[in-house]
Design a protein around this nucleic acid. Structure first.
Lengths: 228, 228
DNA sequence: AAAAGTATGTGGTTATAACCACGAAAATGA
DNA sequence: TCATTTTCGTGGTTATAACCACATACTTTT
């Protein structure tokens, strides 16, 4: 196991290589290699370990009752998966985790993590990092949910832009997404999104150039009442 | 502070009244009363305490750049709020927390919680409970996001039903929502939802009576390829 | 049991977003 | 720099969901 790499991941932030070594011994880390295409975690089962991707990548997939598959996420080296499931005792997986390429996964037992201990300090650091990861995912999901709740394209865009404005502290904002990614994020069709942006420009609501947008500050009265 | 009540909340699950007393002394709990309408946490500020509602209720609100308000959640006694923000250092609130009625809030410092300690065991229990709460919220949000991503009403319904089937282990399922709530959950108009349910019954896909639905198991080929 | 209130289904209309196709523009890379 | 690939905007068409209005069924209250 590449201690140096592990100590630099978000999950082990604040841990030295030596810390990692110690806690690895205490918790009993396990590293497993998977061939591309192998199912690592299977829907319906329960797990107690989170997976930390050391190399390669894994894909989080969902299959509905009728067998329709959708890819929810791809996790790259340094990222973790199944943390929500590993933290809730006996919560069956809603998703499959599949090796997207030949990969190497470090498994970390969550129940062990919560047993107080001789290496309490490092352990606590780990728990706190895990907590932060979970909380961040929460905020991400909440934001997206907020932005996809308006029924119109314009409404979703304005909600998203509002977010960017507040994050970037200016009505000139830069979006990290290209058109297709933004459409996916807001659950829209790309071409429809492009069209609506054009209309908004026409209506004098925004100016833009590629992913840089300049929002016009409209008087509140103009929009209030509209459910956009 | 009503120790008995506190010890029975989800956050303190597994803690005796005495445990609560001990950890309260150690962490320094603070209880505050608010009059209805008071802002408890204000958008843009940063917080380090989670709030546990002891009595009354609080409302989680969001205001966009143009001042349009939306209510994201209401938290009742025993529930907590702002946990995601309190766990991430310096994360500015995206939301306001407002007293929905005269209420009493118990504030618990998260940074203190992560400092190892004399009452390590109880503390760890608390952290673990918090972790579970966060993880559960994650799954909730992920599920909803999954079910609102299809573009058609039918698609969203099938995705939702698929979930119920897997949770309830049968193709006869009961939904906890009435029509309006289901429409809100799936981001749909109620009347449009009702109509689509009617069509699906007509198409022989489902039978239903109020919130009890019976899904027909259609051959995979019938639906596959459709993006529903 | 009547009355008031709430939830649900349905018809009709309209706005709107998805979808398809294609050309232009921009980015990539050889 | 030229060729190839990817991204983006736009026109046109169609399916579809929102919206509004109302009647019926079901609940709750008194």
């Amino acid at each position: 196991m590449d201690l140096n790499f592990v100590s630099k991941t978000f999950l082990f932030r604040g841990c030295s290589e030596d810390d990692v070594r110690k806690i690895a011994k205490y918790l009993g880390f396990k590293t497993v290699r998977y061939k591309k295409g192998t199912t690592i975690y299977k829907e319906g089962t329960t797990v107690t370990n989170i997976g930390l991707v050391l190399s390669g990548s894994v894909q989080i997939e969902h299959n509905d009752f009728w067998g329709n598959k959708s890819v929810l996420d791809i996790v790259y080296p340094g990222g973790i998966f199944a943390e929500a499931y590993a933290c809730i005792p006996n919560e069956p997986l809603m998703i499959n985790v599949v090796a997207n390429a030949n990969c190497e996964i470090l498994f970390i037992s969550i129940p062990n993590l919560f047993i107080p201990c001789t290496v309490c300090k490092i352990q606590n650091r780990l728990i706190q990092n895990l907590m932060i990861i979970s909380a961040q995912k929460n905020l991400q999901l909440s934001k997206r949910s907020l932005h996809t709740s308006p029924k119109t394209i314009r409404g979703r865009l304005l909600s998203y832009f509002s977010q960017l404005i507040s994050e970037q502290g200016s009505s000139k904002v830069v979006s990290p997404f290209n058109r297709q990614q933004l459409a996916d994020y807001l659950n829209l069709d790309r071409s429809a999104l492009s069209k609506e942006l054009g209309k908004m420009k026409n209506d004098g609501l925004i100016e833009y150039n590629k992913n840089a947008f300049h929002l016009q500050t409209v008087r509140k009265g103009t929009l209030s009442g509209q459910k956009y």
